[in-house]
Amino acid sequence: MRVGVVTFPGTLDDVDAQRAVRIGGHEAVALWHADHDLQGVDAVVLPGGFSYGDYLRCGAISRFAPIMTEVIEAAGKGLPVLGICNGFQILVESHLLPGGLLRNDHRTFICRDQKLRIENNETPWTAAYAKDQEIVVPLKNGEGQYVADDETIKRLEGEGLVVARYLDVNPNGSMNDIAGIRNDRGNVVGLMPHPEHATEALTGSGLDGLGFFTSLAAGAFA
Rank of each mutant, 00 (worst) to 15 (best):
M1K: 04
V5G: 12
T7S: 14
T7G: 06
P9K: 10
A17R: 01
Q18P: 00
I23M: 13
I23S: 10
G24N: 11
G25P: 03
A28R: 02
A30Y: 08
L31R: 01
A34V: 11
H36L: 11
D37A: 13
L38A: 13
A43H: 01
V45G: 05
L46M: 07
G48Y: 12
G49Q: 14
S51G: 14
S51L: 09
I61H: 03
S62E: 10
A65C: 13
A65L: 09
A74M: 00
C85P: 05
F88C: 10
L91P: 00
S94W: 00
P98Q: 15
R107C: 11
T108G: 05
F109D: 15
I110N: 11
R112F: 05
N120T: 02
N121F: 08
P124F: 03
T126C: 06
A127T: 10
K131S: 05
Q133M: 11
Q133N: 08
V136K: 10
L139H: 07
G142K: 06
Y146P: 05
A148R: 02
D150M: 12
E151I: 09
T152Y: 04
I153C: 04
L156Q: 01
E157Y: 03
G158W: 06
G160K: 03
V163F: 02
Y166T: 05
L167A: 07
L167V: 02
P171L: 13
S174Q: 04
S174L: 06
N176C: 13
D177M: 05
D177P: 00
A179I: 04
G180L: 07
N183Q: 09
D184C: 06
N187E: 05
V189L: 15
G190M: 02
M192V: 08
M192Y: 07
H194Q: 14
P195K: 06
T199D: 02
A201K: 13
G204H: 02
L207K: 07
G209W: 00
G211P: 09
F212C: 07
F213E: 06
L216R: 05
A218V: 11
